[in-house]
């Protein structure tokens, strides 16, 4: 018998595309979907045979930790695969399970079969293929853009009736200050990202970048030097030492395309580069590039985009 467990954390009562794609890819005798959520309802559960669902109540304090003993009592090692999304809570629960079942846990899994799976390494510059362990669960964190060749189009609304009690241990934390990030779109989830670098010349010039992002419903990114000199907040810094993004479209404005920057954006499906230097290394790593002054190109884009 092939049992598989999937741990996920829906947003606004909807499971993510990568979890849906995972569900459409895997073949199993039974699949159990464990959702970490605050509401009792999930709107987009695919019609799949042998799928069961239960919930784990999400604590509203993100510093809480799951209770090791309760997790131990509630989970057995009958699953061949335990998949999880790379959110903090899912990763924490999966790590506990790796400890309990004394087995390997790996992140950035982008394909899987019953014999082997592949893991992205070096920010997607390379991959490693692993053989599936037969005697222990394989605990696999999937990439946020996990894709599938089989589209699922039929979804149902499900009321969660079965709840797993693995209470959260209140964290001993004194919160001094909580700064909510202002841009609503998280870089990791954004379908489109607009990035800008030192070519912007000064922080007060970012208005056109913000306008472009707004128009495209895009996340905002920047190069490392720009956040180092405090032109932009650090959480916008993408690259080798920043956030790794994998949007459908990345538009880079006034960024030279240093290898450390590319390491964070190479996962983008399409890259558009606006840079007035014909020798900029980014052009070689672009799908479309325009060798012009960004202060001309972006206003013109803003005028012409619907």
């Amino acid at each position: 018998m092939n049992h598989q467990l999937i741990i996920c954390e829906p947003k606004n009562s909807r499971i993510s595309d990568s979890i849906i794609n995972l569900l459409s890819t895997i073949k199993a005798d039974s699949i159990h979907l464990l959702v970490i959520c605050e509401n009792n309802v999930i709107y987009n559960i695919p019609f799949i045979e042998n799928l069961t669902i239960s919930g784990v109540k999400k604590s509203n304090n993100s510093f809480d930790f799951f209770d090791f003993e309760l997790v131990k009592q509630n989970f057995t090692d009958e699953s061949n695969f335990i998949y999880f999304e790379a959110t903090k809570r899912c990763t924490q629960l999966a790590s506990l399970l790796a400890e309990i079942f004394d087995t390997e846990i790996r992140m950035n899994v982008d394909s899987v079969s019953n014999e082997q799976y592949t893991v992205q390494i070096f920010s997607g510059k390379a991959k490693t293929t692993y053989s599936v362990l037969q005697d222990k669960p394989n605990i696999l964190g999937i990439v946020s853009n996990f894709s599938s060749n089989f589209a699922i189009s039929d979804f149902k609304e499900v009321q969660i009736s079965n709840w797993v009690e693995i209470d959260n241990k209140p964290a001993q934390v004194k919160i001094l200050d909580l700064q909510k990030s202002n841009s609503g779109i998280s870089l990791k989830d954004a379908k489109v990202v607009v990035g800008a670098g030192r070519g912007m010349k000064a922080p007060e010039n970012w208005g056109i970048i913000e306008d472009l992002a707004k128009k495209l419903n895009a996340g905002l990114a920047c190069s490392k030097p720009v956040s180092d000199i405090n032109w932009r907040p650090h959480h916008e810094h993408v690259g080798q030492t920043g956030i790794k993004i994998s949007p459908k479209l990345y538009i880079a404005c006034g960024i030279s395309g240093a290898i450390q920057h590319l390491a964070g954006v190479n996962g983008s499906e399409i890259i558009v580069v606006i840079n007035n230097d014909p020798e900029a290394p980014f052009h070689k790593n672009a799908d479309y590039y325009i060798t012009e002054d960004l202060f001309k190109v972006i206003p013109s884009l803003l005028n012409n985009l619907n």
Binding site: Q172, V173, K174, I175, L176, D177, L178, Q179, K180, S181
Partner: peptide
């Protein structure tokens, strides 16, 4: 970094 943004906290 936390889900909502960034937090400054004191911990033992």
């Amino acid at each position: 970094e936390v889900e909502e943004g960034t937090a400054e906290i004191e911990v033992n």
